[in-house]
């Protein structure tokens, strides 16, 4: 199994940390992982993206131009990355702020109302964990228990009291993801 993922959105949405937790979760179940952020000048207040690869085998290129899954969290990223999903691949996005919805018919498209759900739950910081949950519902490449272990490993001990809240957010995401058919 090799899963090649791009996660793209605004800086501050937790794009990089979502990727990091996914990478840690892969390590917890003894897989190979790579996490390659965009660190260019475009990050200052603009878009942020990270390529995450989780694989049973040694990972070749950490830089890719086609992905099994694109997780898209703003319009700019939709414009840039919709085309990079491999035929038959997955595009997961949050419709909040999206003015042009995806139109491809050769991929599987899903929506998660992450921003809305986080606001409903009264904590916008768990937005990225809701989206992560939605992704893991579609592609259960890592087990939830390994995500929790990954959180423990990646968060400093003083934040470990926040882990149950993050776990709940992941489960909310798992429950609320919906398939989307382009018009």
């Amino acid at each position: 199994m090799t899963e090649e993922i791009i996660i793209a959105g605004f800086g501050g949405q937790g794009v990089l940390s979502m990727g990091k937790i996914l990478a840690y979760s892969g390590i917890m179940q003894d897989q190979e992982v790579s996490w390659m952020p965009s660190y260019g000048p475009e990050m200052r207040g603009g878009t942020a993206n990270v390529t995450v690869i989780v694989s049973d085998e040694r990972i070749s290129s950490p830089i890719l131009n086609q992905f099994d899954t694109a997780i898209i969290l703003n319009q700019q990223s939709m414009d840039k990355f919709e085309e990079t999903v491999k035929p038959g691949g997955v595009l997961l996005y949050d419709p909040n702020g999206i003015t042009r919805h995806p139109s491809r018919t050769d991929i599987r498209i899903f929506q998660i109302e992450g921003a809305k759900k986080a606001a409903d739950l009264g904590n916008t910081k768990i937005f990225n964990m809701i989206v992560l949950g939605a992704y893991l519902q579609i592609k259960p490449i890592v087990k939830l228990e390994n995500v929790v272990l990954g959180l423990k490993k990646s968060l400093p001990t003083r934040y470990h009291n926040l882990i149950p809240m993050n776990e709940n957010a992941i489960q909310e995401g798992m429950k609320n993801v919906t398939a989307y058919q382009p018009a």
């Binding site: 990478a23 190979e32 992982v33 790579s34 996490w35 390659m36 952020p37 660190y39 990972i59 950490p62």
Partner: peptide, 10 residues
């Protein structure tokens, strides 16, 4: 280079 410096792996 910047790729190897900035990326995270095991």
């Amino acid at each position: 280079d910047g790729v190897i410096g900035q990326m995270m792996e095991k």
